[in-house]
C-alpha cells in the first residue's frame, strides 16, 4: 500500500465536472457524486490543464497509471478534501508474483500454463486436425486444429522444448495412439494470436509463485519463468505466444534442413 498526499487545495470538483461535460466524458445532465467525480481524473483524455505541451496536459498520465497498476493486479484510489489536500492510494497485491496456472505434463516434465492465456481444453483425438503443408510428406509438416471457430497451430510442447524428439512432425507418433493422444490447451496471447498447446495430460490447476531463474542464464524461448511445486521440484512456466513462435522457428529450420538434404 502506497499513499501519496499533498496539502494543496484539493480537487476542484465543480471544475472537474464542467470539463468532463465539456469533453463529453459524462452526460450533460449527469450529476456525479464526489467519489464518482474523483474517478473522472483517471479517464482517458481527461485533463484540467489549460495548456497542452508536448508531454503534459493530454489527459494520458493518470489513465496510463491506472492501467499499469490494474495490469499488476492492484488498485488506485483518490480522496480529496477541498482546502486540505488530495491523497492517492495505490494498493498493490502482496506479491506481484502469484499466477493461476494449469499444471501439465509433457515429455516427462511438469510445466505450468498460465490460466489467463487458456481459452479451452480438449482431447486431441476429438479435434479436427489438418496438415498445413501439401505434398506427399504433408503429415510431417505443421498441423492445425480447428477450435473455437478458427484454425490454431498445434504446438507439441515436449518436442518444441526438446524433451522428446519431434519424430516425423507434430505428434505424428501419437496420431495412431489409441490411448488418447494427449490434451490440447487452446491459448490466446494479448495480441490475439492463438496456439494449441499439445501436452500429455493436465494434472491440476493451482496458484503458483513466480520465481525468476537466477544465475545469468540466457532467456529461453517459450519459458516465462519458473516456480516451485509442492514437492519442492522446479517447474517451468510456459509463455504460450513465444512457444508458438519457437515452434515456427523450429519448423522453418526443419524445412531448410529438408531442402538441403
Amino acid at each position: 500500500m502506497i499513499e501519496l498526499s499533498d496539502d494543496g487545495g484539493g480537487i476542484d470538483r465543480a471544475r472537474v465536472r464542467a470539463i468532463a461535460r465539456a469533453r463529453g466524458l459524462i452526460a450533460t445532465d449527469a450529476a456525479p457524486d464526489d467519489a464518482e467525480t474523483d474517478q473522472l481524473l483517471f479517464r482517458p483524455g481527461f485533463s484540467t490543464a489549460g495548456q497542452v505541451s508536448d508531454v503534459s496536459g493530454r489527459g494520458v498520465g493518470l489513465d496510463v497509471l491506472r492501467s499499469a497498476i490494474a495490469g499488476l493486479g492492484g488498485r488506485i484510489a483518490v480522496t480529496s478534501e477541498p482546502g486540505r489536500g488530495t491523497r492517492f492510494t495505490l494498493s498493490m497485491p502482496l506479491t506481484l508474483a502469484v499466477l493461476d496456472g494449469i499444471v501439465v505434463r509433457a515429455g516427462g516434465q511438469t510445466l505450468i500454463v498460465p490460466v489467463a492465456t487458456a481459452l479451452e481444453t480438449a482431447a486431441l483425438r476429438a479435434l479436427d486436425r489438418r496438415p498445413l503443408g501439401a505434398g506427399p510428406d504433408r503429415s510431417a509438416g505443421p498441423q492445425l486444429v480447428r477450435m473455437q471457430g478458427g484454425f490454431a497451430p498445434l504446438c507439441d510442447v515436449a518436442a518444441i522444448l526438446g524433451y522428446r524428439p519431434a519424430a516425423g512432425g507434430v505428434a505424428q507418433d501419437r496420431a495412431d495412439d489409441r490411448t488418447g493422444g494427449g490434451v490440447v490447451i487452446l491459448t490466446q496471447a494479448e495480441d490475439g494470436r492463438r496456439a494449441a498447446l499439445l501436452v500429455d495430460a493436465i494434472l491440476d490447476q493451482r496458484q503458483v509463485v513466480i520465481k525468476p531463474i537466477r544465475g545469468g542464464l540466457p532467456p529461453m524461448a517459450g519459458i516465462a519463468a519458473a516456480t516451485i511445486l509442492g514437492d519442492g521440484r522446479v517447474a517451468l512456466i510456459l509463455d504460450p505466444a513465444e512457444l508458438a513462435g519457437a515452434a515456427a522457428v523450429a519448423a522453418a529450420v526443419d524445412d531448410i534442413a529438408r531442402e538441403v538434404v
Binding site: Q109, L161, G162, K211, I213, I223, A226, I228, R233, V234
Partner: peptide
C-alpha cells in the same frame, strides 16, 4: 528440472530454499 535446448553441461535448475 531440465531446461529446453540447454547446453549439455547445464543439467537444469533446482530449488535452493525457494530460489
Amino acid at each position: 528440472t531440465p531446461l529446453p535446448h540447454a547446453p549439455a553441461h547445464l543439467s537444469g535448475v533446482v530449488n535452493l530454499r525457494g530460489t
